[in-house]
């Protein structure tokens, strides 16, 4: 519907006389050979690459019956992994939302030297291998890491015993790393398009920073913010490479993807079915994420 109106608008801009006829033409053309072929190719590609895998997961997870499925997803290792996954995802989303809001505010409301560099640096985690993220934390906080004495010293002072690798905090850090730019990347274009005139006016009238954000900026960006948080969440619960590097204790610091790996690698037919059973949980989560995303995208577009 909206595409059609867009299309009409575009045509009106260029040539006002033709639209109705041209549109009819377009609709007729759709029934031709080429569109059918292209739609056919798309549907086949879509089915083989995207739908088949989902069916495969569900089929394999239920192969040994529902009781086996239930046992697999309520095993103590799975539950512990679920807990770690939830903790890591929640903290990652919270930290990256805070960061995303600050970074987007900084990058869109002010002019300063080095802005472009800062914006590029924020995008680093997007383009590097997650394995490198894990490696980076091991080299900073690991046995040979230069920050290890510092962490030990702090632990001595506070009487704590926190370690940033091979522990839950390490898993959380690795998760934050890979999802770092997700929120800011969604917010920056929206806030840029909005401009800062409204905020300036509010500031001139004496509004405080937090009030400006809450009353002026937030209503414009809420859908983009939610969208970024959803993306961040999706990546966080599914992260494998980075977390794999810094998590070694099954049943303690494993996340769901790591638990799946352990079950699958055990190699017996039973454990492979269990791996798929646990996978089906994540498939469900992925589908929920996709639906939420569609909804948020749709609402956001409608409000614009």
């Amino acid at each position: 519907m909206s595409k059609e109106t867009n299309h009409i608008k575009a045509q009106e801009r260029v040539a006002k006389e033709i639209p109705p006829k041209a549109e009819k033409n377009q609709e007729k053309k759709q029934k031709g050979f080429v569109p059918c072929l292209l739609i056919g190719i798309s549907v086949i590609f879509f089915l083989i690459m995207l739908v088949f895998p989902l069916v495969e997961v569900i089929y394999r997870s239920l192969k040994d019956g529902f009781a086996a499925y239930k046992n697999a997803i309520t095993a103590s290792n799975t539950l512990s992994a679920l807990q770690v996954t939830l903790i890591a995802t929640l903290i990652a989303v919270a930290v990256n939302t805070l960061f995303g809001l600050c970074a987007a505010w900084l990058l869109t409301k002010f002019e300063f030297r080095g802005k472009q560099v800062l914006s590029t640096l924020i995008d680093i985690p997007f383009s590097i291998s997650p394995v490198i993220a894990g490696l980076a934390y091991i080299m900073t906080f690991g046995r040979m890491g230069w920050a290890t004495p510092l962490v030990e010293w702090l632990n001595d002072i506070f009487g704590t015993n926190i370690s940033f690798v091979f522990s839950v905090p390490g898993v959380v850090l690795a998760t934050i790393f890979v999802t770092f730019p997700f929120v800011s990347r969604e917010l920056v274009p929206v806030m840029q398009a909005q401009g800062s005139a409204e905020e300036e006016a509010a500031a001139m009238m004496g509004a405080k920073g937090l009030t400006i954000f809450k009353r002026v900026t937030f209503p414009h960006i809420r859908w983009a913010l939610l969208y970024g948080m959803i993306l961040c969440c999706a990546r966080a619960f599914g992260e494998f490479g980075a977390v794999y590097a810094v998590s070694k204790a099954r049943g303690k610091t494993f996340t769901l993807p790591l638990e799946i790996d352990a079950l699958y690698m055990a190699g017996s037919a039973d454990s492979i079915t269990q791996a798929f059973a646990v996978s089906s949980l994540l498939v469900l989560l992925a589908i929920i994420i996709l639906v939420l995303k569609q909804v948020v995208e749709y609402r956001g577009k409608r409000e614009q």
Partner: peptide
């Protein structure tokens, strides 16, 4: 909507599933 499934589906799940398929 499903085009973005590979973003949302954990890579380990995709890996074992494709490997079996």
């Amino acid at each position: 909507g499903m085009i973005e499934l590979p973003f949302a589906l954990p890579t380990a799940v995709a890996g074992i599933t494709l490997s079996r398929m």
